[in-house]
Design a protein around this nucleic acid. Structure first.
Lengths: 341, 341
DNA sequence: GCGCCGGTTTGCAACGATGCAGAGATGATG
DNA sequence: CATCATCTCTGCATCGTTGCAAACCGGCGC
């Protein structure tokens, strides 16, 4: 059952192990005669290098780990796709794990029993773990963070400018003449930093437009899932003065929100406009199609992977946050039937 | 940069390497005195076992690979989630890769340069690779197939009964009084086996109901993506006698179809009912919510992982196909506003 | 003919861990 | 008191590969 080893091939070809290795790796010149013999033997025995042994010797595995909260959340699935693609372009493969938003699981990653020694580096999209914990527990494994959760200068990290993105989203709604704009997805507690940034951006836009923030219109949600978007909308519709637009902090919330609005007989965007963040594919084909702030996931993945590999190779500049580009994609949910894309 | 090794700890604690190993693994009894000393040293030096070395020695990596066509397709993302969870329960981690439906990529997996030696086993959701290719190239890596693509007896494989599932979907529509039922997603060429099975089930249901198959209503699509569902519907609506229901071979097609129908002003389900397959979360919050045949992904993942591990450990029965359960989830797209879940 | 050179080929050690068998120490047994 | 069993603890070999440096070889210049 065990595979063919260099030794087997060497014996068969009548050369030293080292020569076979040289042929396989092509790094050192080998005479035509031996090369031919060795190649024949490789073929006959169907040799496959044992990568575990090679990795041990080389001190590199060619694997990075990507850890996201939930893979069935489209944003993370789409991001994972890009990360895998980017990693492949650099000759790396990706081990994928999910934390289910469980802090324990995130901590495990860095603990004694973690598999961290199997990876050259770690891409982490943290949900609940704090900066200090991360700093103290990082076992010298190169880490690049995805998303905004931790923003002190200790880690490389790649994210969009959440404040600006939220501001733009809100301004887009204001530009449509909306004035009672709800914000769905706030998380006013320690691990909700991304959400809090978006609330700040939302507030900035309102302020600049001279619109007062109505606290009733800022609805927190425990997670960024469809059902919480729906629940939030139900609460908003029950207000004495319901909103005329809803800025959801991600597309899933927005889709849940639209679902609830549609059920309630509210017309989108005529009565209430909806905008999300994430640019997931689902939003293109929802009814109505969802306007969204779409981060450039390919760029995020590419930057994150490149940075991580630079850290691995020791050629990285000091930790810094890298702002990823995003764009406003206007579709039916805010623009009426004249929409695009 | 390199981590602390057993040797370092041994030196520090004044014991042999082997003893440290014994403490770490806990397999062999160690006296309290030494244990204490060793544990202190482990702590002080922050020792982490080098898993690459351990794997080399043990001949196991504790990793399995999951290869799907596209991770940004919700079905695969949701399945991947379950696979990762199931694998974790068995102490395995998952390397994830995607083939983009590219046969070359699938073949690479099994080629000389593949990383297969890094995994104990492979879960493959094949899209284009043929049974023969797979058989001839499999390098003794334990493999379990997901989905219906290959169904001869050479491989373990886990899937729903596609014929029966398609029949039930169609029967559900028939049961609603629909008679002109379109089928969207046929793939009448060599690598479209799953689709072909669904077409068979569709035909069976019609036949049993005494409804003739109208070839105009069977629309092939190159892939199972939203846009092809939309395109198919556009073609169907252009027919002299449009359908009164659409059975889409997966949920993404169905969502694309509903999008196109809604845009065309067609009422769902009043004018045309829509049903999909896959039971993705997206369908719960689409407008209208999508009726679907939902395979039990957790079961599929669990069965696949268990089987794979059995193969790895040499305790597996001979290759067989395992039929996974599924259920019909009725929502608004076929049932009107009285829907559930 | 000798020494040196460049290009090949090789053996040995090492990556860091575990399997195995044996060495010590301890206590029980006759 | 000698013998033996038991329990710890240790050293060595090994997993399959690659880095290193030395050995080898034919040919060339002097």
């Amino acid at each position: 059952m065990a595979g063919t080893t260099l030794r087997d091939v060497a014996k068969r070809a009548g050369v030293s192990i080292r020569t076979v290795s040289n042929v396989v790796n092509g790094s050192v010149p080998v005479s035509d005669e031996l090369r031919t013999r060795v190649e024949a033997a490789l073929e006959e025995l169907d040799y496959r290098p044992n990568l575990v042994a090679r990795n041990l010797r080389r001190g590199r595995t060619g694997m990075i780990a990507l850890v996201v909260p939930e893979l069935d959340v489209p944003y993370f699935a789409e991001l994972a796709r890009e990360v895998i693609t980017a990693a492949r372009a650099h000759g790396y493969v990706v081990m994928l794990d999910q934390t289910d938003g469980d802090g324990e699981r995130e901590r495990e990653l860095l603990g004694r029993e973690s598999r961290a020694t199997m990876f050259d580096g770690l891409l982490l999209s943290p949900l609940t773990i704090s900066a200090e914990e991360l700093r103290s527990r990082t076992n010298k494994v190169p880490v690049v963070l995805l998303g905004e959760h931790i923003f002190n200068g200790d880690f490389h990290h790649v994210a969009i400018d959440n404040i600006a993105a939220a501001r733009e989203a809100t301004e887009h709604l204001l530009g449509q003449g909306r004035r009672r704009i709800a914000a769905v997805g706030d998380q006013p507690y320690s691990t909700g930093e991304t959400a809090q940034l978006r609330t700040i951006g939302y507030g900035q836009a309102l302020e600049r437009a001279g619109v007062a923030v109505d606290e009733d219109l800022v609805v927190p949600t425990p997670r960024f899932h469809r059902r919480f978007g729906a629940e939030a909308v139900e609460r908003l519709l029950a207000l004495p003065h319901p909103p005329d637009a809803v800025f959801c902090y991600n597309d899933l919330l927005a889709i849940g929100a639209m679902h609830a609005l549609t059920r309630a007989g509210v017309r989108i965007p005529d009565d209430i406009a909806v905008i999300g963040v994430d640019g997931i594919q689902e939003g293109r084909y929802s009814s109505p199609a969802l306007t969204t702030i779409a981060p450039d996931k390919a760029r995020i993945a590419h930057t994150a992977v490149s940075t991580l590999i630079a850290v691995i190779e020791g050629t990285a500049p000091p930790p810094a946050e890298s702002k990823a580009p995003y764009r406003l994609v206007v579709r039916e949910s805010t623009a009426g039937r004249a929409a695009t894309t």
